[in-house]
Design a protein around this nucleic acid. Structure first.
Ligand SMILES: [Zn+2]
Ligand SMILES: [Zn+2]
Ligand SMILES: [Zn+2]
Ligand SMILES: [Zn+2]
Lengths: 130, 130
DNA sequence: TTAAATATGTTATATTATTACACAGCGTTA
DNA sequence: TAACGCTGTGTAATAATATAACATATTTAA
């Protein structure tokens, strides 16, 4: 809650917009929406998005090139994300499953890699679309 | 091994190229490489890539927009992929971890979604880059 | 052998993302 | 205070990734 105050003008505008949507937004759709607020160029959007991702306020849905707000206040989670994605209606939900998180956090490969982050995307059909 | 015989000419050319690389290739780098074989347009590459992904011969590394051959012969795995990615040298390895696969396969959310697929990408530093 | 399904070739275009450059504001510190 | 590093802004141009639309060919299967 307090970190928000350190956000810049453009970052606030774009975070507000993303937080108002419960579904992922694409960069150029964001650009379209914030033109009325004086943000005119893709780069202005991407710069804000990159920052917001970095500090964990939003996440990128990699398979969709779209950005969704993180609802989780204790955000280690920027570095440990799990999403469910309906391939019919494209509904996206962030998942917080304690057991699953544990398994992912504890995962060690046999190559001596040092992991700092992961992203997991589940695909399927939601209740409505089955 | 036998499914390969049913691949079309373009699909074979592109699969061969990807299989010769142990690292992910990007679509336009593939396009560049197969121009000598008479494949001239992005769409020809993307069509082959899409098909190869669909039948599990290759996987897309979503966070990198790149494609890597699947080394696993018993390919259910097209629908259940795990990768480790070094953020320094960009080395990518497909992971087959039985225990992890079980946990992911058995995962159920509380929203009644029916999952058919998942993709997990771990990020960090490989042995060489630590 | 005809119809459906799959693949090809080509052109154009849409979508996603970055490079490069000029400059502004702010806090540190020499 | 002046110099510096750091972060952010604004703008133009361009790069990189991916698909639409259309015409045709080939393979498969009823
Ligand atoms: Zn989150
Ligand atoms: Zn749905
Ligand atoms: Zn595989
Ligand atoms: Zn490395």
């Amino acid at each position: 809650m307090q970190k928000q105050e350190t956000l810049s003008k453009n970052q606030k505008i774009i975070l507000d917009l993303i937080e108002k949507s419960d579904q992922p937004l694409k960069a150029y759709s964001i650009l379209f929406d914030v033109k009325k607020k004086g943000i005119n160029a893709p780069l202005q959007v991407y710069r804000a998005l990159n920052k917001l991702v970095k500090i964990g306020k939003i996440h990128k849905i990699e398979s969709r090139n779209a950005f969704i707000a993180c609802k989780n206040s204790k955000c280690q989670i920027a570095k440990a994300t799990v999403f469910s994605i309906c391939e019919s209606c494209e509904d996206v939900t962030e998942i917080h499953d304690h057991k699953l998180s544990e398994h992912l956090r504890d995962f060690k490969d046999n190559k001596g890699m040092k992991y700092t982050k992961y992203n997991l995307e589940f695909f399927g059909l939601c209740k409505k679309c089955i």
